[in-house]
Amino acid sequence: MTHPYTYIDPNARVAPNVKIDPFTVIHGDVQIGEGTWIGSNVTIMDGTRIGKNCRIFPGAVLGAIPQDLKFAGERTTVEIGDNTTIREFVTINRGTTDRWKTKVGNNCLIMAYSHIAHDCLIGDNCILSNSVQLAGHVVMGDWAWIAGVSAVHQFVTIGQHAYIAGGSLVSKDVPPYIKAVRNPLSYGGVNSVGLKRRGFELEKINHILDIYRIIFNKGLNTSQALEFIEEELTASDERDEIVTFIRESGRGIIKRFTKGATEED
């Protein structure tokens, strides 16, 4: 299953049925799970862990050291879950002492020319469209989707089931279940289409809509809105997740779009 023009370090742990195309280089401290395919001209560097049934397309570079001047050669990792596809020329860097790893979950699609920097944690079933650029320490919840040619600031958190429109500059946290659109990036409603596709019932989607109407449309500040939600709305996993996400936001959440707003606002 390995082409003679491929180099595999004898210390690498590669499952027997992994298929590796020519001109790929696999370093020593690497693990690759069963059923994975590695295309041509891929470089898999020390510290990379790849799960089962993944597809790594030509030109990808996985496990390069962080582009972080504080990095001093620590033993860190890149971890790729099962059934994940990594398209052409994607780069994923190892972690630093902050989290010691960069992680991409199961069933993800990382499209061509995307970059995932050190210490990013990407959940399951996530999609990064072409040329998405994640700075260090970004966290994405399960089922989050970032459309093409978007850039995400370091330490940003993106909630599960969130959708971010193409060409976005993401400098604030994006709460779960919503669409983030426009420039500057703003609340664009609940991601109802995505939620329906994933089996959310209409009643639950409407409940999420009610929560975000209070946060963005009722004229309350964030603290007042969260207190109102907890006092007036029926308890649910979605309600508690949204409230906790906003309370724990390190960078503050995106705002409702206001005509004439600027990024500085």
Rank of each mutant, 00 (worst) to 15 (best):
V61E: 13
V61Y: 10
V61P: 12
V61K: 11
L62H: 01
L62G: 09
L62C: 02
L62M: 03
L62K: 01
L62P: 02
G63M: 07
G63I: 06
G63A: 07
A64L: 08
A64I: 01
A64S: 12
A64W: 00
A64R: 10
A64M: 06
A64V: 04
A64C: 08
I65N: 11
I65R: 13
I65E: 07
I65P: 07
I65C: 04
I65S: 09
P66W: 01
P66K: 05
P66T: 03
P66L: 05
P66F: 04
Q67E: 11
Q67C: 06
Q67V: 07
Q67K: 08
Q67R: 09
D68P: 07
D68L: 06
D68I: 06
D68A: 03
L69T: 13
L69V: 13
L69I: 13
L69P: 11
K70G: 13
K70M: 11
K70L: 13
K70I: 02
K70Y: 12
K70D: 12
K70S: 15
K70A: 13
F71I: 10
A72N: 15
A72D: 15
A72C: 13
A72R: 15
A72H: 14
G73F: 03
E74K: 07
E74V: 11
E74D: 12
E74P: 12
R75T: 15
R75C: 12
R75A: 15
R75P: 11
R75M: 14
R75Q: 15
R75E: 15
R75W: 12
R75L: 14
T76H: 10
T76E: 08
T76L: 09
T76I: 08
T77L: 13
T77F: 15
T77D: 14
T77W: 15
T77I: 13
T77R: 14
T77E: 15
T77S: 14
V78H: 10
V78W: 07
V78R: 08
V78I: 11
V78G: 06
E79C: 10
E79V: 14
E79L: 12
E79T: 13
I80R: 03
I80F: 09
I80C: 05
I80Y: 04
I80K: 03
G81V: 07
G81R: 06
G81W: 02
D82W: 11
D82S: 10
N83D: 12
T84R: 00
T84H: 03
T84M: 04
T85S: 13
T85W: 04
T85N: 12
I86S: 00
I86C: 01
I86N: 02
I86K: 02
I86T: 00
R87M: 08
R87P: 10
E88P: 04
E88I: 06
E88V: 04
E88D: 04
E88A: 02
F89Y: 14
V90T: 01
T91R: 06
T91L: 06
T91E: 09
T91W: 09
I92N: 02
I92S: 03
I92V: 07
I92T: 01
I92F: 00
I92D: 00
N93D: 10
N93E: 04
N93Q: 08
N93V: 00
R94V: 05
R94Q: 05
R94F: 03
G95K: 00
G95S: 00
T96G: 01
T96H: 00
T96D: 02
T96K: 01
T96C: 02
